[in-house]
Design a protein around this nucleic acid. Structure first.
Length: 424
RNA sequence: GGAGAGAUGGCGGAGUGGCUGAACGCGCCGGUCUUGAAAACCGGAUCCCGCUCGCGCGGGACGGGGGUUCGAAUCCCUCUCUCUCCGCCA
């Protein structure tokens, strides 16, 4: 949510920023409501001041045993006018909040302008894509031969898009989760948390998934709860409606399943593990002082990169353009792994700085150095998402005989296993 | 799922219609004292909104919402959450 004061005072700047987000700018309406609201507040405050004054007088008169009939009539009338104005005020406030909740965050300076992913900028690459002496297979062919997953039977359980990992495949995923959690907690200073996988609408609104993305998520109508599309939601909302009274930054890491309806999914990405309705992810979340958020964003991105480096997987870092960023982000880096069988880059992480956008929605504040309450800045990034990490791991590590060599860093988590081979 | 109890400032905990933004204690900040610290003593401090260039002025908030009343932390309704006991259960 943007600060209404910013919209009021720097309308042109806000409009210019929103234009690059392909957002339908509705500032006229918001500002009209804001003006209306403030006018009512001024009037209501004036009436209340008068009523307080008269009420005090009534108290004094009654104590003196005098008649207060006429004067009581005045306050009764004031009370009625206050009730009427209060109703109007509430309506205007709700309407304004609805509009504000639908306005995306402003891009940070330095974010390239652009309408879609073609305007994203590659800021760096790491690792060399491997040269193959044979035609590399894709992860589905490799994994099925190795008995790592079973898509056909999986479809019996919940339809397509809900993967069933089997044997070494299931264990590989568990090993990766453990490896990543250990890396972030021991090397990067994160505290591990295990949050709920279902959250309320209030939590979804706090991080910005609602109202806009309702159709992309699974909703349990009986209990009015949502399955989380990312651990960002429960973890960021841990401090909702709170003034944080411990030193910042707070760094949290969580492993959770993620559920996404991905209504528009189509094409080759529906094959295998590339795009699924349920997947596991390790997520990094930070609450930081406003002045520290830019540095923290670079650092957090580095924490996600460290996973890929430790596994020896070639990747590139994209700076997303204004039109390709998610609703709540002010700046975002995507990490993409090279997948030789797939023949393209796979997004395994989005590292975003939300500045005060989520904090303002969720009312997450801290006491700054002047002792004043101030919204924190929130950040998060995948560290990293699993299915595509598995895809890249298999496709990059594959040998001509169909076996897969495992990165050394992972072997301790697999009982020393060096290579995946077909089950006996 | 059933029965009961409760929700007040950073924490504990008073307060049952006006003088209570809130006693008291702890914790916190500043000062006196001290070589320094502790103790003791003195003082300070909630949050949100509106108006104002500012000094400041006004309004609101005792879990959320609604009501009664001239006036509500206090009375009524409702929702949410917490705790205790019972039932069920991985």
């Amino acid at each position: 949510m943007l600060d209404i004061k910013l919209i009021r005072e720097s309308r042109e700047t806000v409009e210019a920023g929103l234009k690059t987000r392909r957002s339908e700018v509705k500032l006229d309406e918001v500002l009209a409501l804001d003006e209306r609201r403030r006018a009512i507040i001024t009037e209501v405050d004036r009436l209340r001041a008068r009523r307080n004054e008269v009420s005090r007088e009534i108290g004094a008169l009654k104590k003196a045993g005098e008649d207060t009939g006429a004067i009581q009539q005045e306050t009764r009338e004031i009370g009625e006018r206050i009730s009427a104005l209060d109703a109007e005020l509430r309506e205007a406030g709700e309407a304004q909040r609805r509009l504000l909740l639908a306005i995306p965050n402003l891009p940070q300076e330095g974010v390239p302008e652009g309408a879609d992913s073609t305007a994203n900028v590659v800021v760096r690459s790491w690792g060399e894509p491997r040269e193959f002496a044979f035609e590399p297979k894709d992860h589905v062919a490799l994994g099925e031969a190795l008995g790592l997953f079973d898509f056909e039977r999986a479809a019996r359980l919940a339809g397509s898009g809900f993967p069933l990992l089997t044997g070494a495949g299931a264990r590989l995923e568990r090993a990766l989760i453990q490896f990543m959690l250990d890396l972030h907690t021991t090397q990067h200073g994160y505290v591990e948390v295990a949050p709920p996988h279902l959250v309320s609408s209030a939590a979804m609104t706090g991080t910005g998934q609602l109202p806009k993305l309702a159709d992309d998520m699974y909703h349990l109508s009986t209990d009015d709860l949502w399955l989380i599309p990312t651990a960002e939601v429960p973890v960021t909302n841990i401090y909702r409606e709170e003034i944080i009274r411990r030193p910042l930054p707070i760094r949290l890491v969580a492993h959770t399943p993620c559920f996404r309806r991905e209504a528009g999914a189509a094409g080759k990405d529906t094959r295998g593990l590339i795009r699924v309705h349920q997947f596991n992810k390790v997520e990094l979340v930070q609450f930081v002082e406003p002045e520290a958020s830019r540095a923290a964003h670079e650092e957090l991105t580095g924490h996600a990169e460290a996973v890929l480096q430790a596994l020896g997987l070639p990747y590139r870092v994209l700076l997303l353009c204004s039109g390709d960023m998610s609703f709540a982000a002010a700046k975002c880096y995507d990490l993409e792994l090279w997948a030789p069988g797939y023949g393209g880059w796979l997004e395994v992480s989005s590292c975003s700085n939300f500045e005060a956008f989520q904090a303002r929605r969720a009312n997450i504040r801290w006491k700054n150095r002047e002792g004043r309450n101030e919204f924190v800045h929130t950040l998060n990034g995948s560290g990293v998402a699993l299915p595509r990490l598995v895809v890249a791991l298999l496709e990059n590590g594959q040998q001509e005989d169909g076996s897969v060599i495992l990165p050394e860093a992972l072997r301790p988590y697999l009982g020393g296993l060096e290579r995946l081979t077909p089950p006996a």
